[in-house]
Design a protein around this nucleic acid. Structure first.
Lengths: 234, 234
DNA sequence: ATTCATTTATGACTACACTCATATTCATTT
DNA sequence: AAATGAATATGAGTGTAGTCATAAATGAAT
């Protein structure tokens, strides 16, 4: 490559290309091919049934090369779905109807997440298994990022609902968000493990959210909002 | 073995021995040896670091024989700790101080569970990983049993606290129990994943429980109980 | 006691995730 | 353009979970 060609590369196309030599470019391309190959095969055959050999073959790299880009097979799972999950979560919060009861907003958000997982339940199972307890702690930051988005998203919904629904002003929205997510997460696990149907899970989740908002104590009669005559029990 | 000896076996010792021939007896003994070997090695070297070969050797059986008793290595984990976890849970509920505020009762129960896991955190991590999403659905019933005990245990605590603390009578205790367990479980995962210390986890858990009991709405002034002046926020 | 069917045991074998010594490619220096 | 060093690539090799064809043990039937 001549000096002229080199210079050209810096401003190639319309995009501002950082000084990326053949080396980094190849690396990036391989990385992309690995992610694409993993995604395709996981979707087509399932996580456990896909071998790292197959992924390497489809990505057109040597078997050893794969592990230069992902330290373990589980890493591939996180690498492939991390961005997708983060974007799904962000989108879920973006689409929430404002000025709608908090319970409904929560159901919109978690409904979107459930819909995402519903596209491929066995894969979701593998993904949740790995996210819950990482096999390699190096990916912890990825999970933390996702969690922060979710917790603070829920926190914002709660904070936003304070005025509309007359919620307490002395609660920590983030902490409440964690609680609500915990309630969702356990239900999610139950659903993915085949202990309930999606419908039953979502229906029951709604009841739990209402209970979490109203609390276990009797409401002051005039403060009603979420509560119907004789709810709970579903 | 003579017919006489056979008959004797039926009433051997002081225990009432069911008609268990050499066959079943041998099987039981091997099973016990496998469990003991697994328990010892998991505790000594960790789950991942223990090989099935080692377990077989220590249990004095062939490598293939092991998989006659446990279909996978993960099965061994569940087999070894299932009873222990069930008994820990039962004991936790048994030891709860009656006539004590519900929050404190809950903290007693979950504190006992945390103490149990705290004895060997890496092992607890492996165990929770497996329990959360089973690698082989055949063990589902075991997990369900444990969950039933916990949910209904919490449900009973809530039902018992109804009168003492003037809780709503229209709530489903089991459903509320699930919610509270979900809140605990997510925190547990965070702790086991090294995102918090045990102390911070437990402290925050308490705040979440109070929030779950009181709800997000303002309390009627005269109904106070759990709530202090300006709580939450920890 | 002998035969026979069924259950249980076994270790050589297989499949697969992951490693490592060696080779190749790229960039830099002369 | 040649040489050198560093980064990257590779597939044969390794360790281990799990399988399977074969063997041993047991109990029932005669």
């Amino acid at each position: 490559m001549t000096k002229a060609a080199k210079k050209q590369a810096v401003t190639r196309g319309a995009e501002k290309v950082p000084p990326m030599g053949r080396r980094e470019r190849n690396k990036q391309e391989k990385f992309d091919r690995i992610l694409a190959a993993s995604r395709d095969l996981f979707a087509a055959k399932g996580f456990a049934e896909t071998t790292t050999q197959e992924i390497a073959e489809r990505a057109d790299i040597g078997t050893g090369t794969l592990f230069l880009y992902a330290k373990t097979k589980e890493d591939l799972l996180i690498m492939v779905f991390k961005d997708e999950m983060i974007e799904t979560s962000r989108a879920a919060f973006r689409k929430v109807s404002p000025a709608t009861p908090l319970v409904d907003q929560l159901m919109q958000v978690f409904g979107a997440m459930v819909a995402y997982h519903n596209r491929d339940v066995p894969l979701a199972r593998a993904l949740i298994r790995e996210i819950t307890i990482l096999s390699r702690p190096e990916r912890r930051e990825d999970v933390r990022t996702l969690m922060r988005i979710i917790y603070s998203g829920i926190g914002d919904l709660i904070a936003g609902a304070r005025d509309r629904e007359g919620l307490r002003s002395d609660i920590d929205p983030m902490l409440a968000g964690e609680s609500l997510f915990g309630i969702y997460y356990l239900g999610l696990i139950g659903w993915l493990s085949g202990q309930t149907t999606k419908q039953a899970f979502l229906k029951r989740l709604r009841v739990k959210f209402i209970l979490a908002i109203d609390g276990l104590r009797p409401t002051a009669p005039e403060a009603g909002g979420t509560r119907k005559r004789r709810p709970a029990k579903a």
